[in-house]
């Protein structure tokens, strides 16, 4: 399918005015408007994410997360909140903050040394970032889901068990298996 032409958005050199017209349409569920919005800002969000230290595969996931959040939040956008670009930047910064905080907790749970302790929301060093992304990618969908509830949403094992409708023992074993798999990967031990 040929790519739609969104050049009209840039002709006036007034991206924000164009984006401001798009957001109500996005809120109403207009896929084409969302595509235009992505064409306008996608690469610049990618630039932000990469400057904050995300490795390539992870950067793609984070950009995707930012635009999913923008889609979900479009009906809450009002011009009083400022230019769409700043609004989107706020979403992107918070997504990055959430991501690195979750990663810090996982690193601590896996038992890797973190010295010095990373400042709140800061990205770990390049090698660790690359490895963490790969380690998470190796988890099964069930393992990722439980890791996300516990280290992302901050739930206890019992709360996560309720949310997933499985026994607490199952949550515990999934977490242990996931952390074990990540530990093996990050420390170079062979995974069966």
């Amino acid at each position: 399918m040929p790519e739609p032409d969104f050049a009209w958005l840039r002709i006036n050199n007034d991206e924000n005015a164009g984006a401001q017209r798009l957001l109500p349409r996005i809120a109403a569920g207009d896929r084409e408007a969302f595509h235009a919005f992505y064409t306008l800002y996608g690469a610049r969000v990618m630039a932000l994410v990469r400057r904050r230290g995300a490795a390539p595969q992870l950067a793609e996931e984070l950009v995707q997360d930012v635009f999913v959040a923008a889609w979900q939040g479009a009906d809450g956008y009002r011009p009083e909140l400022g230019e769409p670009e700043r609004w989107l930047l706020g979403i992107a910064r918070h997504k990055l903050l959430d991501h690195w905080r979750r990663m810090h907790r996982i690193v601590a749970a896996v038992g890797l040394p973190l010295d010095p302790v990373l400042p709140d929301g800061a990205a770990p060093d390049t090698n660790l970032r690359l490895s963490l992304g790969q380690a998470v990618a190796r988890l099964t969908a069930d393992q990722r889901r439980v890791i996300d509830l516990i280290y992302g949403s901050g739930l206890t094992f019992a709360e996560a068990a309720h949310a997933l409708e499985v026994p607490a023992g199952t949550v515990k074993s999934r977490v242990n298996a996931a952390l074990g798999k990540m530990r093996d990967f990050l420390t170079g031990s062979p995974t069966p």
Binding site: G42, A43, R50, E60
Partner: peptide
């Protein structure tokens, strides 16, 4: 950055 951007279909 442009090159690494995920496709819109994926998003």
């Amino acid at each position: 950055d442009e090159t690494r951007l995920p496709s819109f279909d994926r998003v």
